[in-house]
């Protein structure tokens, strides 16, 4: 037993060392960096500034604007989760060729995110994009005059958020870049790992409970609502938790590939803001502070979700 533990440690050591050097170390290094005014453009002039970076960012209007953007992007999460569940239920049917359907629907998850984003950028083209072409054709058929959305070129959004200050206004109400990214995000995540998780969970729903409900005269919807859905609670809890964490940390790829964070910063999230501060303005200290605040937000949201959202999940 003693020998095998030693062997196990030896096997674990490379990974552990890698984790300590390349993950744990940098994370705590960044905490130290957040307390300095480290700027890559001013080597040798770094000094300890205490909590000044944190104070600055809390007073920074842009930080809050980008925080609102980040939260706005979470609006797509319920729809993505509902879509994944719907797809999983469909794929849980016992019909011919199911393996092929499952593979097809999981295909976007194999594809490079950047490639998909370039594809979506073309789909959203206001003039030639198939989405607007379809909308225009529909409006012609129905004789309904329609102003098609300008998608990635517009600062409008369904909540009417202003692009430059915190607040809402009627002139900004509509569909724009933020919503375009949300729609794309929903499409990308519906057939992904969430669907697989639900699919796995659905196979574990006790069949005897479903059968008992059916014998008692429950409809398919009632069976789903009273038996299947509660059985999926731990999976849903896990998916929401991971979705919140991923959503709050996300938005970088989309901004980098599709919008550059624009128009007028409307698709800049906190993750992109960190990159921008660190590698465009070279303010590593400040960027580290933003990263730690983002960590605190993610941690608090996850904790709250754990505390208030896990009862149903753990009761089962």
């Amino acid at each position: 037993m003693k020998v095998s533990r030693k062997t196990a440690i030896l096997f674990l050591l490379p990974n552990l060392l890698g984790f300590l050097v390349f993950t744990f170390g940098p994370v705590f290094f960044s905490l130290g960096a957040s307390l300095t005014d480290w700027n890559l453009q001013e080597p040798g002039q770094t000094s300890f500034v205490g909590l000044a970076n944190f104070a600055e960012l809390l007073l920074d209007k842009k930080f809050w604007l980008y925080f609102v953007n980040t939260v706005y992007f979470l609006l797509g999460m319920p729809f993505a989760i509902a879509g994944s569940l719907f797809l999983a239920v469909l794929l849980n049917q016992k019909i011919k060729g199911m393996v092929a359907y499952r593979t097809l629907l999981y295909l976007p998850s194999f594809t490079s995110g950047v490639a998909l984003m370039i594809l979506w950028k073309a789909l959203y083209n206001p003039t030639f994009g198939p989405i607007n072409q379809f909308l225009l054709a529909t409006s012609r058929v129905l004789h309904l005059p329609m102003d098609v959305p300008q998608w990635l070129l517009s600062t409008k959004n369904i909540l009417g958020l202003e692009p430059e200050k915190l607040g809402m206004t009627g002139t900004q109400f509509g569909i724009g870049a933020r919503d375009a990214l949300i729609l794309m995000g929903i499409w990308m995540s519906i057939g992904g790992s969430n669907m697989l998780l639900y699919l796995a969970a659905l196979t574990n729903v006790p069949e005897d409970l479903t059968e008992a409900a059916q014998l008692d005269g429950a409809s398919r919807w009632q069976c789903f609502r009273a038996v299947t859905w509660p059985s999926l609670a731990p999976t849903t809890f896990f998916i929401i938790t991971m979705g919140l964490i991923g959503g709050l940390q996300g938005g970088f790829e989309q901004a980098r590939v599709m919008t550059g964070g624009g128009p007028a910063g409307s698709t800049t999230t906190l993750a992109y803001h960190i990159y921008s501060k660190a590698f465009e303005e070279f303010r590593i200290g400040y960027a580290s502070a933003v990263a730690w605040i983002l960590f605190a937000i993610v941690f608090a949201v996850t904790l709250a979700h754990w505390k208030f959202g896990s009862r149903e999940a753990t009761d089962l």
Partner: peptide
């Protein structure tokens, strides 16, 4: 440049 580009974005889209 970033500040200026953000503002010019808004002029460019007639906002």
């Amino acid at each position: 440049n970033q500040i200026l580009s953000t503002q010019l974005d808004l002029v460019r889209i007639d906002a």
